[in-house]
């Protein structure tokens, strides 16, 4: 891996997050490189999801939240240099459970582009087809784009959510334990699409499944109690981690 020549897509510096009196993240600094899949692993309450949601400012809606430190996207501070709405169009997110809106498949996918002001029918049609193809769902749903998205199976729903996020052509996609509710076959399909997306997008994957991190991650970061223990190339983390706590977690001694 030529990780050295890849430039940083996202730079996180000294990020600290408090929810009320609870500290979720402490003095976190790391880079997410362009076109990599950065896996973030760690036990519950290690700050993985808080970290992920701070990258698209979805934490902003939590009451009593305090954030310090900075996150930069292509060198721009996401709190001061970019509007939150524009940031979220560039940094998409896939949630742990698939959440199709109670609308048709077509309307789910065009939700983002339409609200962004795109009205052209042909352009929307093309976005729907391209996004569904990129999420490996097109062949399964192309004949029923007008039927309810909630009638799809769990695995299809999650791929629909990926397609919906892709419809905005984001530069970065955040995956928040995207396969926690899926069976192994659906999981494999989601992972397949992640590896495919990596060609054009940068991916941050939070996962509870260390095997998944090992399968798809370019690099892997290990979080523990709100702190970054270590970050390195995935094969390094899984074969020769520097910190004994990383090893303990990976072999299943805690977490």
């Amino acid at each position: 891996m030529n990780n050295q020549i890849c430039k940083a897509k996202i730079e996180v510096k000294n990020l600290t997050i408090h929810f009320g009196k609870v500290r979720a993240l402490h003095d976190l600094s790391l880079d997410v490189r362009a076109n990599e899949i950065l896996s973030v692993i760690g036990p519950a309450n290690s700050g993985k999801t808080s970290f992920l949601r701070s990258l698209n400012r979805l934490n902003d809606f939590e009451p009593h939240i305090r954030i310090s430190g900075s996150v930069r996207l292509d060198g721009l501070d996401i709190r001061t240099d970019i509007e939150a709405e524009d940031l979220r169009k560039r940094v998409g997110m896939i949630f742990a459970l698939p959440i199709p809106l109670p609308r048709s498949i077509y309307d789910n996918i065009t939700y983002g582009p339409r609200l962004a002001g795109l009205r052209d029918r042909a352009a929307l049609d093309r976005i729907v087809e391209d996004s569904l193809k990129a999420a490996f769902l097109w062949d399964e749903v192309k004949d029923r784009l007008r039927s309810s998205a909630q009638k799809l199976s769990g695995g299809q729903q999650q791929r629909l959510c990926i397609a919906r996020t892709l419809a905005l052509r984001p530069e970065v996609i955040l995956f928040d334990e995207p396969c926690s509710g899926l069976d192994p076959i659906s999981t494999a399909k989601v992972e397949e699409s992640m590896l495919e997306l990596r060609k054009d997008q940068t991916i941050v994957l939070v996962t509870n499944n260390t095997k998944q991190a090992a399968r798809v991650g370019t690099r892997t970061a290990f979080f523990l109690m709100g702190e970054l223990v270590e970050i390195d190339a995935t094969e390094k983390i899984f074969t020769a981690p520097r910190d004994p706590r990383t090893n303990d977690y990976i072999v299943g001694r805690f977490g």
């Binding site: 709405e85 979220r88 169009k89 998409g92 997110m93 949630f95 959440i99 983002g112 959510c161």
Partner: peptide, 15 residues
């Protein structure tokens, strides 16, 4: 209305 609908909408760049 589930909080998750709002989060999905926000995550897709909606105001």
């Amino acid at each position: 209305v589930p909080k998750s609908y709002r989060e999905v909408s926000f995550s897709l760049g909606a105001s």
